[in-house]
Simulated scan of single mutants.
Amino acid sequence: MSSTEQLTGTVERVEIQSQFLGETREVHVYLPHNYSPLYKYPVLYINDGSDYMMMGRMITLLNERFQDRTAGRFLVVFVPVDKALRSDEYHPEGARHEGYVRFFADELVPAIEDRFAAFPMGPARGIMGSSLGATAALHTLLQYPKKFHYVALQSGAFKESTFAELEGRRDLATVPVYQVVGLQEATFKSGNGKIIDILALNRRLRDLLQAQGVDVQYAEYDHDHTWGFWQEDLPRALDHFVRHTAF
């Protein structure tokens, strides 16, 4: 191999028959170039998986990251969503939300850990998402706090039911949370034309989590609700994930 040749990871497609969703779901699993079944790896599960792969350019980022032989290795599971069903699955009051969360925790995770060399423990499992995908990530963790011990939230579009679910929780103090939002997200216009103050929602969530003793790495940047922002932020998010899931 020449000094300029880049080592690249592989992406495997995995089909999972979901009882909770009543259909077969396909996910994409990224394995570092030096992946070995003789080791165990933390796993980062990602909502809006296709968007993170394409618009987030995350495969390129991971390949670049793992050129450094000292970089902590982990697996990434990209979970695509049908855009026509995204709100139904990601919104905490969506018609398919409960089924999606149960698929995620009770079908997806066991399937990945049966096929790949993943640490079968909560502190080695993280979930990441942006916008409504971040909301779904947080609600999955809230419903399965023993199965997932890490969450990364990019510009979460949190709902009143999110805050209601968090009230009085005493089992989240050991969960590291990575949270970012853009200063230009105070007037985000949703698909139905509604103006949402994403910035205020994120500040409210941060305050509520910190009041419950949660370790939140929180930051605000001069950005809008766009993939340009989230893509730029990914190296910071991945650094945080590695620091909190290293074994």
Rank of each mutant, 00 (worst) to 15 (best):
V11I: 14
Y45Q: 11
D207F: 08
S50G: 08
L132E: 09
L61N: 04
D222T: 12
T226D: 07
Q67D: 07
A246V: 14
P92M: 02
P92A: 00
L38A: 14
T140V: 12
E167R: 12
R169E: 07
P92E: 07
H33V: 13
D215L: 01
R115D: 03
H33D: 10
T174P: 07
E167V: 14
R206Y: 06
A105F: 10
A152N: 02
G168S: 04
A173E: 13
H28I: 01
E12H: 15
P37N: 05
R125Y: 07
P32N: 07
F104I: 15
N192V: 00
Y178T: 08
P37H: 07
Y30P: 14
M121Q: 05
E5K: 15
M128T: 02
P32K: 03
S18R: 13
F188G: 12
Y100D: 07
P145Y: 01
F163A: 04
L31G: 02
F229N: 04
P42M: 08
L209S: 10
L21P: 00
V177D: 00
E93L: 15
R13T: 11
P120Y: 06
G49T: 11
I46R: 14
V76L: 07
L21M: 07
F66W: 04
P32W: 05
F78T: 01
F116E: 01
T60Y: 15
K189P: 10
H149I: 13
D215V: 01
G56D: 03
I196S: 10
Y150I: 09
Q17T: 13
M54R: 15
V181L: 12
G99E: 05
D197Q: 08
M54L: 14
F247K: 11
D197H: 08
T135E: 09
K40P: 15
L138V: 04
Y52L: 11
W230Q: 09
F119I: 12
D239W: 02
P123M: 08
A71S: 13
D197F: 06
E113G: 14
G129V: 03
R102G: 04
V79P: 11
T245S: 03
G56S: 04
E185R: 07
Q143W: 06
Y100Q: 10
M53Y: 06
E113Q: 01
H33W: 15
V242G: 05
L61P: 13
G99L: 04
